[in-house]
Design a binder for these strands. Structure first.
Lengths: 117, 117
DNA sequence: ATAATTGTATTATATGTACTAATACAATTA
DNA sequence: TAATTGTATTAGTACATATAATACAATTAT
């Protein structure tokens, strides 16, 4: 698993890890029950501290997206059905906000749609 | 000038002030050469420290959007022509990113446009 | 003339978040 | 037996943010 950490972002590393793994799950890159790198391995690959990876994994487990098994490893949950809808809803909300702001600036719906194409 | 500070946001207070004043300028609410509240007044109104307002004003002055005159007050710049285009370009970039992500999730261009309407 | 207001500036302090460092333990696997 | 796993703890560092408490000079209002 290769995650590009962007140190210039305000977004903390552990959150970038969460977002990327969520993304790979929803896009089907990471499949249910698949094993993901151990805390130490990923930390080493990314050149960061294991605690930082552990924090990301804790959040993902809290969300029900991964399951950590002692001495076994960490795995994608077997039920990831909800996450995709949640993600799309999030994106649609952001889309809405931006479009409303563009409308405030005087652009018309047609102009926006034209630029999307 | 009423600015709603959202303390739950990751975005710092001074940046929320910058964003809101930029917004009011581009939307024509704050007009060129208009006087805006003093550092102390705004700080008092918002219930925050004057230094925080000062920081926001410094950034806005650095951007050329406001001008601070010693012992006189702080005023909107007389030339604010560029800022609107900059803001719209920013929004269009964000719009693009979100749409690309939605396309990744399997939505079609037509579905997205339909939801916009 | 006096008091209040303006922008400006400085120093010190507090706080929260992020991240790292250095370990340690128990259980499983090679 | 050695290596790997998740888990956990404690301590420390670094940074950004925000506040507190002042101070100064110039202008404005009373």
């Amino acid at each position: 698993m290769i995650i590009n950490i962007d140190y210039t972002k305000r977004c903390p590393i552990y959150e970038q890890i969460v977002t990327e793994i969520e993304r790979e799950i929803t896009l089907g890159i990471l499949k249910p029950n698949a094993q993901i790198p151990s805390v130490r391995t990923l930390a080493c690959d990314l050149g960061i501290n294991p605690n930082t990876v552990k924090k990301a994994y804790d959040i993902l487990e809290e969300k029900g997206l991964i399951i950590s098994k002692s001495t076994k490893g960490t795995f994608i949950s077997d039920d990831i059905s909800k996450i995709k809808d949640i993600k799309i809803t999030e994106l649609m909300t952001n889309l809405n906000d931006i479009i409303n702001e563009l409308l405030n600036y005087g652009l018309t719906k047609e102009e926006i749609i034209k630029k999307i194409k």
